[in-house]
Design a protein around this nucleic acid. Sequence first.
DNA 1: TTTAATCGGTACGGAACCGAAACGATAGAC
DNA 2: GTCTATCGTTTCGGTTCCGTACCGATTAAA
Lengths: 116, 116
Amino acid sequence: MAVQISPLQSLRLWHSASLDMVRGDEPDLSTRQLAILLEVYLVPPPHTVRGLAAKLGVTKPVITRALDTMGRLGLLSRSRDPKDRRNVLIKRTVDGALFVERLGDLVVSRAAELAT
Amino acid sequence: MAVQISPLQSLRLWHSASLDMVRGDEPDLSTRQLAILLEVYLVPPPHTVRGLAAKLGVTKPVITRALDTMGRLGLLSRSRDPKDRRNVLIKRTVDGALFVERLGDLVVSRAAELAT
DNA sequence: TTTAATCGGTACGGAACCGAAACGATAGAC
DNA sequence: GTCTATCGTTTCGGTTCCGTACCGATTAAA
């Protein structure tokens, strides 16, 4: 079932959601960081640095730095792939799952408030 | 008419929209910049630096810098308020309106692709 | 007219980020 | 065992951003 939404509603939804993120206590993530976070939590594993870099169309250090920052925030973690120790597997965390869950609930509640 | 959307759909929608922004040619705006841009284009004027800072819960220099950056990109412009020359009024631009319009269309098309 | 309040912008030191390039570690080919 | 390719990370110089504090300009109050 596709979601029915008008351009103006889309913008208003994104607007209020962005405002909530900026105003919130948690440090607001950059667009790149958010894209990485959602990729990890919405797409089935495994996730590697190289794979994420290709998916986002950015260089590897961008991913490494974003993982450093979000790792420090506890939103995700890294571990070596035991099968191929060159790889690093990006894993979900409990805190990260809660964060993403709150994000989804936030959008839902903002969407419910939308007028035509 | 409120928009009906589930948490998972919300996250998938934000995910694909973020990916589009990151992958796009245009430099991807930060969450704060996007919040400012949408505030200016969705809320009736006038918009001042101080007002935006209060609305977003950030300091003035954050707004000044964001206006510098997005002004350089042609997404909005500044001009002194002739009524009270201490104020700076933030104004919309043609390029900015087109950018925001594309953003709305992008979300709509991504929403249409969503499965349950 | 002097004083105080209010605007946006700037200076500052520190932090995070950028892409390109080089690096060590690991794995596979020969 | 020796190359070679492929990982993720680090280094590099340069840019952008952060909040605090201060500045010049403008307005309003005394």
